[in-house]
Design a binder for these strands. Structure first.
Lengths: 187, 187
DNA sequence: TTGTTCATAGACAGATCTGTCTATGAACAA
DNA sequence: TTGTTCATAGACAGATCTGTCTATGAACAA
C-alpha cells in the first residue's frame, strides 16, 4: 500500500490510488490487479463502478480536472491583481509537481499514452486545457485586443515550465517560467 | 505496411518502423508482433539484433538522437548569426512534428512511458536534452555571463512550443515560441 | 559445388492482462 | 429478525505479450 486512503467508497479509493500510480509508473504500465491490490478493493467493484480500465482512466482525468478547478478557485480568491491571478497557475503547478514527484502534466501524459484524435482521453485533455486558458483570458480581459495573444504566450511558458520540471525533476524550470510570465505581463 | 522501408537490414527496418509506430500509438501500446509484421522482419531477427523490447526502445531513442544531431549540424552550417543558430532548433521542430503528425517530443514521450530515475530510457532522454542545451550555449557563448540564463529561457520556450504543438495538433505554438525566442535574444 | 552466414516463418512456453462470474459475508433498514 | 444492498475474494476464460527455439531457405564466398 503506497499510502493510507481516506475514503471508504471503492470508486473513490480507486481514483485516489490511480492518481498516485499512474503518474509514477505510466498508465499502461499499471495493471488492474495492481490497482485493486493497492486500493484494497475487489475487482468486481472496479468494473461495477467504471466498466473498463479506459473508463477509469477518463474518470481519473475528470477527477483531476475537477480538483484542479476547485484548487484554483480557492487559491485565486481575494487575488485582485490580474497578473497575480495568472501567476497562481504557476504556483499551483509547483505544489502539484512536488506531490507527484515531478511527473509532468497528468493530461499531457495521458495524451501520450492514448493518442489518436477523438479518443475520450484526448477530449478530457482538451477540456482541461480550454478551462485553463479561459481562466487566463478572464484575468487578462482588461488588456483588450492584446489579451488573446497574451494567453497564447502564457501557455507557451506554462507548458515549457512543466515540461522542464518533468525532465529535470526540479521546480527550477517552472519558477523560471513564472518569472518570464511575470515579465511578459508586467510590460 | 505503413510505408515503404528503405533499408534491407532487419535492424534498420525495425528502427524505421518503430520510429513511425511509437509516436503514433505510444510505445507500450505497440506489441512486438505488430512491429515485426510492419517491418517485414522475423521475430528472431529482432531478438538477435536488440535482445529485448526495452533495448529496442533505447536504440530507437539513440537513433533519433543521432538523426537529430546530424540534421541540426547540416541545417546550421553556414548560419553565422548566433540568434539564427538557436532558432534553427525551432524550425527543425516544426518539420519533425509534421512528419510525425504532432506527437510531441519523442524523448519526453518515452520518459512518460518509462519513468523512474536511472532507467536507460531516462538516460537517453537526458543525453539528448543536454546536447540540445550545449548547442544553444555554444551559439550564445558570446553573451558572456548572461548566456547560461538565456539557454534556460530558450529551453522553456522550446519545450512549451513543442508541448503546445502536441496538444493543439498545430504548428502555431512552436511558431509563437520561435518568435518569443527571437524577441528574447534580440533584446 | 559446397559450406557458411543470415534471415524467415511460425510453433511454443509462460507470464500477464482485461473482464466475467460465483459464492460469501458485512452493513443496515424495516 | 429478515431482506436488501453493497462489497469481497478469487477462480476462470480468453486474449495478448515477450521471448525462445526449431526447421528451412536464400545469398554468397571459396
Amino acid at each position: 500500500m503506497v499510502t493510507a486512503l481516506s475514503s471508504p467508497r471503492p470508486a473513490e479509493r480507486l481514483l485516489e490510488t490511480v492518481s498516485l500510480l499512474f503518474p509514477l509508473h505510466g498508465i499502461r504500465a499499471v495493471g488492474i490487479d495492481q490497482i485493486i491490490a493497492e486500493a484494497g478493493v475487489a475487482k468486481a467493484s472496479l468494473y461495477q463502478a467504471f466498466g473498463s480500465k479506459e473508463a477509469l482512466v477518463v474518470a481519473y482525468l475528470e477527477r483531476q480536472d475537477a480538483t484542479d478547478r476547485a484548487v484554483y478557485r480557492a487559491a485565486v480568491t481575494g487575488v485582485g491583481d490580474p497578473v497575480d491571478r495568472v501567476l497562481v497557475s504557476f504556483d499551483l503547478a509547483v505544489a502539484s509537481a512536488q506531490r507527484r514527484s515531478y511527473r509532468g502534466c497528468v493530461f499531457l501524459n495521458a495524451a501520450t499514452e492514448f493518442p489518436g484524435p477523438g479518443h475520450p482521453v484526448g477530449e478530457a485533455v482538451e477540456a482541461h486545457r480550454a478551462w485553463v486558458r479561459a481562466r487566463w483570458a478572464e484575468a487578462l480581459a482588461g488588456r483588450g485586443a492584446e489579451s488573446a495573444a497574451l494567453v497564447d504566450r502564457v501557455q507557451i511558458l506554462y507548458d515549457g515550465g512543466i515540461a522542464g520540471m518533468k525532465a529535470a525533476r526540479s521546480t527550477a524550470p517552472i519558477a523560471l517560467a513564472r518569472e518570464m510570465a511575470r515579465e511578459l505581463l508586467s510590460s
